[in-house]
């Protein structure tokens, strides 16, 4: 068995399983353990409050519309996330891989120029956001090692993915896949879990505000 076969076979299965099992475990612990307190008689609807906050916080807070940092975080954040999701779900090699290994995606891959463009958005966003972790005193102070590891690992995964774009080399394909697997294993134990926790975090806050007849 070659290394690539190993990476595409058992190691892929193993890392994907770790990702699924532990991410699910962590979500279950977050959502179903600990104390559940009785809540006060509501004034407004907790459900609508949750919905409002979940949707509302996709945009910067109105008080920060004149704030350069908020705009930077918002634009760079969206640039990175949208670019990354397009790459993840629509890039031709990914569509092929997902169809082969997981599920038959109903959509067609994007053309090459689409890939290049999304990669640029993703990289530009990630690089500027990561650089800011070092030079903004506030963000530097609050950044944990985990935040840097997560950013670095994501960057390397994206970089090797782009390097393998020629699809000529098994080595480059293996390198990318190996790093993806490392990333998958790291994921459930890290702040990358925000991928799944954000609606709950926003939702609970929104529900609290809704219950109290205020907005968050």
């Amino acid at each position: 068995m070659t290394l690539l076969e190993l990476l595409e076979g058992p190691l892929w299965i193993a890392s994907a399983s770790i990702f699924v099992v532990f991410a699910a475990f962590r979500l279950i612990v977050i959502l179903f353990t600990g104390r559940r307190e009785a809540e006060a008689r509501p004034v407004g609807s907790p459900f609508l409050g949750a919905l409002r906050t979940i949707l509302g916080h996709f945009l910067p807070w109105r008080r920060l519309l004149g704030n350069g940092k908020a705009w930077f975080v918002t634009i760079a954040g969206y640039s990175f996330h949208i670019g990354l999701f397009v790459l993840l779900l629509f890039a031709a090699p990914h569509v092929e891989f997902i169809r082969e290994k997981i599920v038959n995606l109903p959509w067609d891959p994007i053309p090459r120029w689409g890939f290049i463009l999304s990669a640029q958005f993703a990289f530009a966003g990630l690089i500027t956001l990561w650089v800011r972790r070092f030079v903004d005193p506030v963000v530097r102070l609050i950044s944990r090692p985990d935040d840097h590891v997560a950013a670095g690992l994501t960057f390397i995964v994206m970089l090797t993915g782009c390097m393998a774009l020629g699809e000529q080399s098994a080595f480059l394909r293996g390198l990318h896949l190996g790093l993806v697997e490392l990333w998958l294993i790291y994921f459930p134990f890290s702040s990358l879990m925000h991928t799944f926790t954000w609606p709950f975090s926003r939702g609970f806050t929104g529900a609290m505000a809704g219950r109290r007849g205020t907005r968050a």
Binding site: G34, T197, F200, S201
Partner: peptide, 17 residues
């Protein structure tokens, strides 16, 4: 700690806003 606090504790991405 319950679902609320646990969700909050696991959602921060250190953006500094």
């Amino acid at each position: 700690f319950g679902p609320k606090a646990q969700s909050w504790m696991n959602a921060c991405v250190r953006c500094g806003l």
